[in-house]
Each structure stands twice: as C-alpha cells, then as structure tokens.
Write a protein that binds this DNA or RNA. Structure first.
Lengths: 222, 222
DNA sequence: CTGTGACCGGGGAAAAATCCCCTTTTTCCA
DNA sequence: TGGAAAAAGGGGATTTTTCCCCGGTCACAG
C-alpha cells in the first residue's frame, strides 16, 4: 500500500502561527508509525518560504495557510506554481467561505481542509495527494459542486474583478468614497458602480456589512 | 524544584480549534520529561466546558481562548471565578490589543500569552502559575504598565460601558442606527451619543472604522 | 454590421450618518 | 442630602451613503 517505503514524503508548512504549525506536525506524526511523512521545515509567510526554499530540499507537499503577513496564501500558491510546479499544495485555512475556497480551487491546489481537522483528515489528505489525487473537505466539495451546477445558470458569480477587490479593501478603511475614487483614479460615480455591483451580487445592505464580508473572506485584515 | 513530584498538575484546554488544542498539548508535552503536567480534557467553548466540568476531575490550570462560539473567553472566565475560584486561568489568544488584555487582567487571570508562543513560554507560564505566580507575555506586561502609568493622567480610558459594548456589536451589522435604537430600547439620539463617545475616545472617523476596531478586539466576529 | 455585456461616468434625490450645541433624568458619593 | 457627573434625549444642519435612471465607449460574438 505504501508507495515510498524507504523515502518518506517530504512536507513543508507555511503558516504564521507557531501553534498551528506545531499542531499540524503533531497531527501528522500521530499514527504515522511507518515514518511515512517527514516535515522538512516551516515558514511563517510566503516571503519566508521563498527564502527557505532556496537553501533547502524541495518538499513534495506544502501545507499552506491563507491569511499571512507579507505574502498571503493566494500569492504564495501562484508563485509556487510558477517556480516550483512540482510541489503539491494542501490548503489548511480558517476560511470556509466560498470566495476563499473557489479562489484556491481555481489556482489548482490539491486539497482544502478547514482548521478544525482531525487526525484522520490530514492523513487521508496526505495519502490522496501523495499518490497523485486530490482531497477536499466536505465544505470545499460542496462549494465546488454547487459552483459546477449553476455556473451557467442564473446564479450570480461570486467572482470579483481586480478593481472590485481593490475597492472592497479600501471600503474597509475610514476613507469616504470620494477619497477612494481619488486613490483609485476613477470617478466617484465609478466607485458607486463598484459598490452597487457588490451590493447586488452579495446582498449587502450597507457599507459595514460589505466590510465585514471582506474581513470574513480575508480580503481585509483589521 | 518540582513542587509535585508525584501528582502532576492537572490542565484543561478551552479553545474552539482542534488544531490549537493539539498544538498546545504538543507544546506542553515537549520537554516535559518528568510528566509534571497532565492534560485532563479539552472543551470547545465555555458552554462545553461547563458541561464537562460537572463530570470530570477539576483541573488546576485552565488554558483559555477568547474568541469562541456559544460563550466567549470573558464570560467563561467570569463564570469560572464564580463557581470554581480555585482554578487558575492562563489566557492564550490571537488578540494582542489593549482592550482584550486589559479586560482579562481586570478579570484576574493568572497569565496572558499570544498564540505565537514557543515551548519555553508555555512552560515558564505553567511553572509560574502552578507555584502561585503570574506570567504575562511582553506585550501584556507592556499594556499593563502603560495603563498603570497614566491611569490618573489625562489619558482616555479604554474602558467601555456595557451599553457601549452592546451598541458596538450591533454597529457591526447592517442595521441602521434607528433599528439599533429600537433593539436597545433607547432613543436614536442616545445611540448617537454612544457613537460620538466612541468616536471621540478612539478617534474613529466613521462607522466602518469603528466596526473594524470591534472585530480587532474580538467584540464582534464577522 | 449589429447586438450584447462590461466598464466608466453623470444627475439628482432620498436616506443615513455625522456633527454641534443644548436640556432633562438618573446615579452616586462626599 | 446637595450637587457634580454620567447617562439619556433633543433640534437642526451638513456630509456621506445609497438608490434609480441615464448615456457613452469598447471588445467580441453572431
């Protein structure tokens, strides 16, 4: 059953919280009696990872958080796919919302797990991924399927344009729309257009609700 | 050096994330060669803890998160002080802001650590607390000292009244101030008073900034 | 070529939020 | 128990947000 009886699967962890990293290592080692997995190193952010990848063995699987300082999970995944396409990525995140899950799936990660995982979950995921497969949590599968079902239907796509994302970030600050328009170099009316589009698409009733959503999906960190 | 060579110090953990709990257990066991500590049980929230305390051995030290469903850290600490005054509490939280730290210190917890802890931190804290002392992280010490220095000075107290806290929570939703006034059973003008007071005290420029602060200090979770 | 959809922009009005100055009620402690 | 302070409420003006309806440009498919 074991594919690599003598060479363990090399794992690296990218997460800004020490406690999570240690927890993950513990979960990985628990029940891994055959020493099938070996955690090579840990990094605190995408930037940290970039440095560490240069002077260390390249891992097979990367466990990746989303919300991190310096360089977040999305950026890091994009970068890895470009410069280290061989590394398979398993996302482990607090975020269980559509936006985050879809973005990561679209980036082509091999798995998506919530941070509320049990020992079995992480082992199933690592097994699946190391043997060339995929492993999504229930919630991620649900989001993906729901998306597949009504991609052509009259469902509003959650997809945000780059400009809308930028606006959403700024709408979380104490700037007025006039100031935001100035920063983004568009008319206030265009800003109002972004706002209206997001309100419609997500059903927000006011700016506060919109800002809260931005926080929830990790676009803005207070 | 060891105070209880034969009876280990009994610990319980209250945190809504499995990964954190496992990470904590790992950190506690790492280097604990003399089996000085024994983790009795884990709970996912204050409510869960209340149930589990009834049918289990009472722990000596409780490791406590702040942001949890059902019953958050503040409530849980108050409850514990009332019904189990013998249990010493060590807070381990993501929040490093004044508000959270001060509230917990005022509630009389024995220690405050960030979630970015190393093995030594948790062991030092557990040692200090089990021998009757206190252990605060650098940040918590800093906040406490700063507070002591200018408690009588012209510094605006961060302290929020219960009503203000309630208002702040509701201001994070999509309710208008009229609706909030209705829910809180006061006049809109009173609500405007709460808002103005908070704006002045914390320097907010608009409702979004205020809501973001509420999220940062854990009063509201999006 | 024409239609369709997206993106950008505008006018104008209603609703909500913000600000400033003021009165009444309640609390509480010296 | 008198008086100060805090909490609650108010009038009214300005700014910002929100809404609705409109026109132009540009790319791209039919």
């Amino acid at each position: 059953m074991n594919i690599h009886p003598f060479s363990p699967i090399k794992i690296a962890i990218v997460d800004d919280h020490n406690l999570f990293r240690k927890g993950l290592i513990k979960l990985i080692n628990l029940g891994d009696t055959h020493r099938r997995y070996s955690v090579l190193f840990e990094a605190e952010s995408g930037l940290d990872l970039k440095e560490k990848l240069n002077k260390r063995t390249i891992p097979d699987i990367m466990l990746m958080d989303i919300d991190m300082p310096d360089m977040d999970g999305y950026e890091t995944v994009s970068w890895l796919h470009h410069f280290h396409p061989g590394i398979r990525i398993l996302v482990i995140s607090m975020f269980e919302n559509e936006e985050a899950i879809l973005r990561m799936l679209q980036l082509g990660v091999r798995g998506y797990l919530s941070k509320d995982i049990e020992v079995e979950d992480i082992h199933h995921a690592l097994e699946a991924i190391s043997s060339g497969g995929y492993y999504y949590s229930e919630r991620a599968t649900e989001v993906r399927d729901q998306k597949l079902n009504n991609s052509s239907a009259g469902q509003q796509a959650q997809n945000m344009s780059e400009r809308e994302r930028e606006f959403l970030k700024l709408a979380c600050t104490d700037m007025t729309y006039v100031q935001i328009a100035d920063v983004m170099n568009v008319s206030v009316k265009t800003i109002d257009g972004y706002r209206e589009a997001l309100f419609q698409r997500f059903g927000f009733k006011n700016r506060v609700a919109m800002a809260m959503y931005a926080v929830k999906i990790g676009i803005y960190t207070p």
